[in-house]
C-alpha cells in the first residue's frame, strides 16, 4: 500500500508554511558549507543554494523511514505525524542523516563556490537569510503554499539589493528563472546556473591535467526545462575529461526517479535502477557525473557500490582548482 498522499504532502506543506522549508533542518547546518571561503554577506550578485544540496542528507534519511513504513500498517498513521508536526518539528526527529552524507553534500556546494571564485566571479551569499525555493510544493501542485514561498524569496532578494543570482542546482534554477516570473509581477532577477556562468568565461582554464572517462547524466530539469545541455559538456571537455553518453541523453535524458521518492519510494527506486543500467552500459570503468542533488542521491542508491557517481563539480575542481 502506498503512503497516504494527501498526508505526506500535508506534512511537507505544513513545514513550508510554518518553517519556510519542506524538511526543516537547523539553519547552521544549511550554511556551514561556506566555512573558510570568506564569501561576503549579500551583494548584487549572490550564490543561491536554495538549500537543495544541504537538504539531501535529511531527505535520504526521511525517505528511508518512509520506505520502511510504505508497506506496513504504520502507513496509516502518517496523518498523525502531520497532526503533531504542527506543534513539533516531527520531520527533523524522524530523519537523522548520516554524517557521511552531510559531509558529501556540503562539499559539493563548497566546490561550486570555489570554482566560481577561481574563475574570478564576484559574488556574495545570503547565509542564514537564504530560503528554500519551494520547488517540491510547486511539483506537488500545492499552489498557495508555493506562491507564498516564491514571494518570500523575491522579497528577500529585493530587500538585500540582489539583482543576479547564481544557482547551484537545476530545480532552484528552474523555479527562480522560469516559474517565479509567471506568478510574480515585475520579477526582474537575472538567474544563471553556475555551469552557465563558468562555461561562458573563456579564460577559465584547468590547472591540472585529468584523464578519465566521464559519463554525463543530464538532469531532466536542466536538459528539458532549462536547456542547460552543452555547458556541462563544455566544462568537462575543457577540463580534459573524455565524455561518454548514455543511451538516453541530452534533451531525451532518462529520469533518475528521484522526484517521486518522497511518496512512492519503491517505484522511484525502479526508475533509478533502469537509469543506472543505461549509465553502466555507457561507462567502462569511468565515472558518472550528475548535476542535480536528487539525481545523485537516487542513482547512488540504485547503483549500490557498483558505479562511481559524483557531482560534476567534484570532477571540475580536480582540474580547475588546486
Amino acid at each position: 500500500m502506498p503512503l497516504p498522499i494527501g498526508d505526506v504532502i500535508g506534512l511537507m506543506v505544513d513545514n513550508l508554511k510554518k518553517r519556510k522549508t519542506v524538511f526543516p533542518i537547523p539553519r547552521k547546518r544549511a550554511i556551514e558549507w561556506a566555512n573558510g571561503l570568506n564569501i561576503p554577506e549579500g551583494g548584487k550578485t549572490v550564490i543561491y543554494t536554495g538549500s537543495m544540496y544541504q537538504l539531501l542528507p535529511y531527505m535520504i534519511a526521511a525517505v528511508k523511514n518512509m520506505e520502511l513504513i510504505e508497506d506496513s500498517f504504520l502507513g496509516k498513521f502518517v496523518f498523525m505525524g502531520r497532526f503533531f508536526n504542527r506543534m513539533f518539528n516531527v520531520s527533523a526527529f524522524v530523519s537523522m542523516p548520516k554524517k557521511a552524507d552531510v559531509k558529501r553534500y556540503k562539499q559539493i556546494v563548497y566546490n561550486i563556490a570555489k570554482l566560481l571564485k577561481k574563475a574570478g566571479v564576484e559574488f556574495g551569499y545570503l547565509y542564514k537569510k537564504e530560503l528554500y525555493s519551494g520547488t517540491l510544493a510547486y511539483d506537488l501542485g500545492v499552489d498557495d503554499a508555493f506562491s507564498l514561498q516564491a514571494k518570500r524569496v523575491y522579497e528577500l532578494l529585493k530587500e538585500n539589493g540582489v539583482s543576479t543570482v547564481i544557482t547551484v542546482d537545476p530545480h532552484t534554477t528552474n523555479m527562480m528563472r522560469s516559474v517565479y516570473p509567471t506568478i510574480i509581477d515585475g520579477y526582474d532577477i537575472e538567474v544563471k546556473s553556475y555551469l552557465e556562468v563558468l562555461a561562458a568565461i573563456d579564460d577559465f582554464q584547468p590547472i591540472h591535467s585529468v584523464e578519465k572517462e566521464i559519463t554525463v547524466h543530464d538532469s531532466c530539469v536542466y536538459a528539458r526545462y532549462e536547456s542547460v545541455i552543452d555547458e556541462p559538456r563544455q566544462l568537462l571537455k575543457r577540463a580534459g575529461y573524455t565524455i561518454k553518453e548514455p543511451k538516453d541523453n541530452k534533451a531525451l535524458t532518462h529520469c533518475c526517479g528521484g522526484p517521486i521518492e518522497s511518496i512512492f519510494p519503491k517505484m522511484s527506486h525502479t526508475i533509478g535502477k533502469n537509469r543506472v543500467q543505461q549509465l553502466k552500459d555507457a561507462t567502462n570503468g569511468g565515472a558518472v557525473a550528475t548535476m542535480c542533488p536528487i539525481c545523485m542521491a537516487s542513482l547512488k542508491k540504485a547503483s549500490g557500490d557498483g558505479l562511481e557517481i559524483e557531482d560534476i563539480s567534484s570532477f571540475l575542481v580536480k582540474a580547475f582548482c588546486d
Binding site: 498522499i5 511518496i263 526508475i271
Partner: peptide
Amino acid sequence: TNVIYQCLLCKMCEE
C-alpha cells in the same frame, strides 16, 4: 490520484 502523483514531471513525454 496515485498515478497522478507518480508522474516524475521529467517531461520525456513532452519532448
